[in-house]
Amino acid sequence: MKEKSGITGGRIAVYVILILLSVLTIIPFAWMLSASLKLNKDVFAWPMEWIPSNPQWANYINIWTKIPLLKYIGNTAILTVVVTLLQLLTSSFAAYAFAKLRFWGRNLLFLGYIATIAMPWQVYMVPQFMMMSGMGLNDKLIAMVCLQAFSAFGVFLMKQFYDGIPDELCEAARIDGLSEYGIWAKIMLPLSKPSLATLTIFTFVNTWNDFLGPLLYLHTDSKKTLQLGLRMFIGQYSAEYGLIMAASVVALIPVLIVFLALQKYFVQGIASSGLKG
């Protein structure tokens, strides 16, 4: 009896701590949302009003004319879609060979991927920029595609998943006369939906949120991405609190949607890719 009441007491404590921590974690977002509906002079009014009595929906209209937000979003959306598609296609393609085919130089090539997986992009971003400029890719969106579409991480993640699919399945398909391309398309791809979903969100979130890459490469206003445009806006109009917060909310929404829709895969992906290291 005593034991039981002790457990419920502990349980209530757990809930209280969790609710407190979640509130602390989420407060910046709540504040952002609240401030995005206020006049600049009211943003810092104290005591603060969580739900503005006079919500400034105009903030959400004005940001579209104050900066070319639509252009930024368009650039970012195109970039994200192209990078994600290329990443999924080339990674799963290469991973299939690494996991299921024997060929000359396999271990050496895979070592090339593994050895660089932990190396931060920041180490080689400058020579990479010089090389890309030499190729005439400076200030072009395509440079961002080249930068982000071929990652060691994608190949590694997909290979780990394919390693778990029994070889006998491919063997049987080969005997049935399926080509290697057929096996990849008809057997491996449909089976690897969870890891494809994981790679999709990782790539989507990274590309959508990337800041330093576009900062290096994209200079013309009409080519900027959402993060870069938002940052420039904050630099130029640092006192336009309401507008900055409204634009920030807009920048967060796509990631929020993708994240909520696919979060199951995200969590699985981190857990599986993380623990194997």
Partner: peptide
């Protein structure tokens, strides 16, 4: 096998491995 690897590896080699060596 190389036709599977090439699309990713060429991009990876040109845009990651080469700049690393250059660095």
């Amino acid at each position: 096998a190389y036709s599977f690897i090439a699309p990713n590896f060429v991009g990876f080699a040109v845009f990651t491995l080469v700049p690393m060596v250059m660095a």
